[in-house]
Design a protein around this nucleic acid. Structure first.
Lengths: 167, 167
DNA sequence: CCATACTAGTTTCATTTGCAACTATTTTCA
DNA sequence: TGAAAATAGTTGCAAATGAAACTAGTATGG
């Protein structure tokens, strides 16, 4: 059984970070995130997390903080603090659930909240369009599908890995 | 050439974060990063930045800190601190350039540095393979190409945007 | 040559983050 | 019932981060 000693081609000794998918993905994602972050930072003084909360509440009013956490895979504490800031700034309002007073449903305020949402959405869309301008719609479709499959694979791997170390 | 307007309604009121590319990209990238981070955190007590420094030095020995920054698009301060830690732990050695004493070239130490690199590489490769197991090689090819084009687009957008605010 | 500007890398300090522990409320089931 | 477990959300604190200032060394132009 040909052990890996010096055989002509078992494994190339090279490892090229630039061609390592997790790295590439991270670089692309960071570049895009940074670009889009401009939109809501510069113009509305919002962090990425704050914007995401607004976006998800714009679409699904009345979610609670933990439902937002579920949906967006963001950290619980980060969401709690961002919600606090958005409440203080008057972008959100909070309604305590009648029968279960632990639950506090969140909504965009009519004045500031919805207005901000409405102002950012077209800019975000425009950014996305510009980003994808070089791709045909078939390519966009393919990209989304491949990303989705990658995501599923990553989740599956994570689940299997975890069992090995703790819990 | 049928522009994408086509509908009588100007803009749908909906905005769905889950179908917004920058968001999707970020979620996939975070999931993958977290998964791969296990490999070097659990087994070698390295952060992502530390691992990247090792990886890039494994491939290109003798780079200076600022060359690493250039190549990996990581923060200057973060690299400085990670290098410091790797030197302390004996994974790197530093050679001051003869004629320009500001430059300090970095290399993996034979003992710990190269050994660690050699230990991580196969695991990293294995992770990447598992991640891509569900895709055909043509699909992988396509994915890489599309990511690359996205990256370029994002960089271009960034450059154009910046001009608006400062510099 | 020497004042100024530039480059490499580090440190300081003020925030930001993230884990764990906490409060408050509701559910479970003995 | 009511004590223990579960759930929602917050807070404290220590560590990670990042911008700007700083040290050290080199290049340049008058």
């Amino acid at each position: 059984m040909n052990m890996n000693k010096k055989s002509p081609l078992t494994k190339p000794a090279h490892f090229d970070l630039e061609h390592f998918l997790p790295y590439q993905l991270s670089v692309v994602s960071n570049t895009v995130s940074q670009g889009i972050a401009h939109i809501y930072q510069q113009n509305h003084d919002l962090t990425v997390i704050e914007w995401r909360i607004i976006a998800v509440l714009g679409r699904y009013p009345g979610l609670t903080a933990s439902q937002i956490v579920e949906r967006t895979v963001m950290d619980k504490v980060a969401v709690s603090r961002a919600v606090k800031r958005l409440l203080e700034r008057g972008l959100l309002k909070r309604i305590t659930h009648g029968s279960d007073r632990r639950r506090r449903h969140l909504e965009l305020t009519d004045e500031t909240g919805k207005k901000t949402f409405a102002a950012i959405v077209p800019r975000a869309r425009k950014y996305e369009q510009a980003l994808l301008a070089g791709l045909s719609s078939a390519e966009v479709q393919t990209l989304l599908e491949l990303l989705d499959r990658l995501h599923l694979a990553a989740i599956t791997l994570e689940e299997n890995t975890e069992s090995g170390s703790e819990h």
